[in-house]
Amino acid sequence: MTHVYTVTGMTCSGCKASVEKAIQSIDSVTNVSVNLEQSEAVVNMTNHISIKKLQDALSDKFQIFETNTSKNLFDTIDIPENNSSQLRQLFPLFLIFGYITTIAILLNIRAWETSNFMLDFMGLFYFVFSFFKFLDLKGFSESFKMYDPLAKVVPKYGVVYPFIELGLGLLFITRVQIPLALIITIIILGITTFGVTKTLLDKKSIQCACLGTTLKLPMTKATFIENTIMIIMAVWMLIKIYN
């Protein structure tokens, strides 16, 4: 019998090899084929193997779920549990956004100006998010190219990307070359958002690289929303500058 599973947490060919080796070691498994880009594992087995047994064979870095390719309107779906689990996974992202927003507000609360708030928010955003990417630059680049269209074509772009973010953060915080920084923001986040949207529409279960690989975040609508907020801010600021 053959079963198809979704495996999250894989960011590189080494992860793929680890997953294949771990599952292959289970009794009753005759063959394993892992697709890194699709985050899928096709497992041939002589007897049925429970998800728990498969998960126990994998390291904590990876999560495995059964892929139901014939789901319809009458399937039983445990929505509250899935939503709760997803919210727990995304908690670090919400917490970081909360910190960035609070600091940006405090920096401008005495002499409030929306433009300065946005520039501080965007600068802090890039500083914090680039920091997490630098913790595992190679892992980030491998994960990033799984959904960013430009990183797929030019793999080195994934290595350079955190440096671009850091540079943009400096420009926004120091108020240097703001129009250029806004245009670059719209371009790079626009490209990434296109890839994120395609991934969500294709319903692929892959790891989001927005906070690097240290924090294992799933690719969700929250990723789309965070990029969209930054793009809207950048467009709004450009319009204000040139009007």
Results as ranks from 00 to 15, higher is better:
T114Y: 12
Y99T: 15
A17N: 12
M10D: 01
D202K: 12
V7Q: 02
Q207I: 08
S84C: 09
I229V: 15
A17M: 15
L124Y: 08
A181L: 02
L87Q: 09
L170D: 00
D120Q: 06
R175E: 09
E81F: 10
I206T: 07
T197H: 08
D56S: 15
I96S: 11
I23S: 04
F65C: 08
G139W: 04
A57E: 08
L217S: 05
L171T: 05
C210T: 06
I109H: 11
K240N: 15
A22Q: 06
D136S: 11
W112K: 08
K145R: 15
I109D: 07
T8I: 14
S84F: 13
M118R: 06
A222W: 07
I79M: 08
L180P: 02
G123F: 02
S50D: 10
D148T: 05
F172M: 02
N83H: 10
Q207H: 00
E113V: 13
E165R: 04
F121V: 06
I23H: 02
T185R: 01
M118T: 08
C208K: 02
F132M: 07
I187G: 07
I225S: 04
S130W: 02
A57W: 05
G195N: 04
I206A: 04
F163E: 00
N116L: 12
T6W: 00
L215A: 12
S13K: 10
K52I: 15
V34I: 13
I206Q: 03
F121G: 00
L54V: 03
D136L: 07
L171N: 02
T2K: 11
Y126G: 01
P155W: 06
T197V: 11
G167A: 06
L201Y: 09
S33R: 11
T76D: 09
F97D: 11
T6L: 13
D27M: 10
G139L: 05
V154H: 00
D27I: 13
D202H: 06
A151F: 04
I241F: 13
Y99A: 14
T199K: 00
T193Q: 09
D78V: 07
L182V: 07
L36P: 05
A104S: 15
G123V: 04
A222S: 13
Q24A: 14
D60W: 01
T69K: 10
I206K: 01
V153L: 12
V42I: 15
K61C: 08
F194R: 07
R88S: 14
S39H: 08
I184C: 07
V196T: 10
T46G: 08
T76V: 10
V153C: 04
T197D: 00
S59L: 12
